[in-house]
Amino acid sequence: MGGLIPAAYSDFVGSFDSTRLHVVTGKGGTGKSTVAAALALALASTGKQVLLCEVEGRQGIAQLFDVPPLPYQERHIAHGSGPDAGDVYALAIDAESALLEYLAMYYHLGRAGRALDRFGVIDFATTIAPGVRDVLLTGKVYEAAKRNSRNKGARHYDAVVLDAPPTGRITQFLGVNEELAGLAKVGPIKSQADSVANLLRSGGTAVHLVTVLEEMPVQETADGVEELRAAQLPVGAIIVNLVRAKTLDAAQRELLLTGSVPPAKIAKQLTKAGIESTPEMVNSLLAEGRFQAERRVLEDEQRAVVATLGQPTVELPLLPGGIDLAGLYELAADLREQAMA
């Protein structure tokens, strides 16, 4: 997939080499989970040990990799492609388990923790107390990202990829300590929120935004970039997903848009190609061409908007056959070629 990066986008080379935490967000329907999974594979193919996390309880990773639902436990799910490739582990984080683990770890509240659960306290703390849920989720990701060789027995990862909540909620999700500041001024949740904030604002984190070349998702991406910057969160790449094949060149598209392609000419070429053409077939081909050309005009408008965001940008193709495991590896290769890993 060489040459996918349009000249309009700002050029960048391998600026995510030292990134340890990749946060992937995007509007619903843009394929952010697919991109997160492909990014994890791409990183693994460079020899890294990678942890892919999800926090929305959708079991999206399990579905993408075609494995049984993931527990609150790191599971090996894939091996990167290539001879020196690393592995991809996956973890589905839920706030309830994270809180119980947290209580057990810091307060030795093993049994008592479960008793609290019976009273609905765990549910309460993770559901209603504002921001606590998000701190617990990001806290677990933080723990995995900060692990190093000194943590005996715990697996050490070179990179963590987080399939994060959608763009509309991402700043609130990551900047949750702002939310808490007015509420929890002290206490362990506050200090956990602070540590998470430090990691997020350090050079080791990048928040990537996935979009498609349509007006609403691009607008939401622009808003998201602005909000992240305002919150001093590190914006990474814009990943433009589901990009249609650029089968027709500008001159051909112009001919189709102006309706100046004589059907007889297409019919003649079809005959040359060994295809028995009918007027209906020719019309259908021309209609398809015009549809693509019209779509492309809109896509180019949005591409220009994305270029003004001033972030490194990569593009991933729409795979006509849909996403399966092979498709994920294909997208991973595309990400690697475009210096995302």
């Binding site: 094949a245 089968t247 027709l248 051909q252 001919l255 392609v261 000419k265 297409i266 070429q269 079809l270 040359k272 190609a273 060994g274 295809i275 259908s284 081909l285 021309l286 398809e288 061409g289 693509q292 006509p320 056959g321």
Partner: peptide, 29 residues
């Protein structure tokens, strides 16, 4: 459609038709 596009690959005058055939193949899939 893809086989047809292949056959037109070397002919400059067939480029547009080949492109339309590829789009057709994508659309079918």
């Amino acid at each position: 459609a893809l086989a047809g596009a292949e056959r037109l690959a070397d002919s400059p005058s067939g480029a547009l038709t080949a492109g339309l055939l590829r789009l057709h193949a994508d659309r079918r899939r």
